[in-house]
Amino acid sequence: MEPILKVENLTKRYAKRNSARTPQEFLALDSVSFAVSAGATLAIVGESGSGKSTLASCIACLEPPTAGNFWFEGRNLAQSAESELRKIRPQIQLIFPDSASALSPRWSILDIAVEPLVLQGKLGRKERNARTFFLLERVGLAADMAERPAAELSGGQRQRLAIARALTLDPKILILDEALSALDCSVQAQIANVLLELQASRGMTFLFITHDLTMAAHLADEIAVMSRGRIVEQGPSTKIVRNPDHDATRQLLAAVPRLPRSPWPAAQP
């Protein structure tokens, strides 16, 4: 099947900041290549500073890559003009660790979720609200909450709101950048279920960026492991967590805290 997203040799260089006397360059992404087919989930894992978030913002067209190309539905976005990107952006939505907290706490939940549609200005008021209500329901924010101010939401509910808001524009790709990591375990499970359901019913593609290998193994079809700006290992998720080939993967796996379901963790670090 033709991949919905294909990335080839994507590279991003930053001028290095702190404590450098001589100007130095920092390679955040070092020729990263991968492909995701429509309706699949690719997890990108790695420790902090491995380039995961840079990758997310490049693919969401928030930052231009220094070199390399990436194709969304066959269109090379690395070479596209800003006017063209503006049309593409709604189809690739990015969710941050606490996206919804950046939104005004005084706005009602409905107002926040419907805003992207209002800005787009294509649908009438009635259609907009109907669609938004439907999505809020889908992510588990009941309709009777829609008029309440966002300030009343808990962390998990805010993240659901962020997902509902991202979905209003009917994106084809959802990039989740540590979108679950800060939440309670029981809330993570609830949102993970919402994501799985969305994927099953709408064939949505997920780019799941995280340092949590446990959740990555559960949600993703494939896992790509990043270290120092490079993808060092990629493969089916069960293979990666069971038979890792690269040291970086093994290191990450060793650091995953585990509940003693089966044997009590004998190997203490």
Binding site: T41, S186, L213, A217, H218, T238, V241, V256
Partner: peptide, 14 residues
């Protein structure tokens, strides 16, 4: 509610 992590199988996944 916590996923199985390394205990994840093809069947339990997703």
């Amino acid at each position: 509610s916590i996923p199985a992590g390394t205990g994840e199988t093809e069947k339990s996944r997703k």
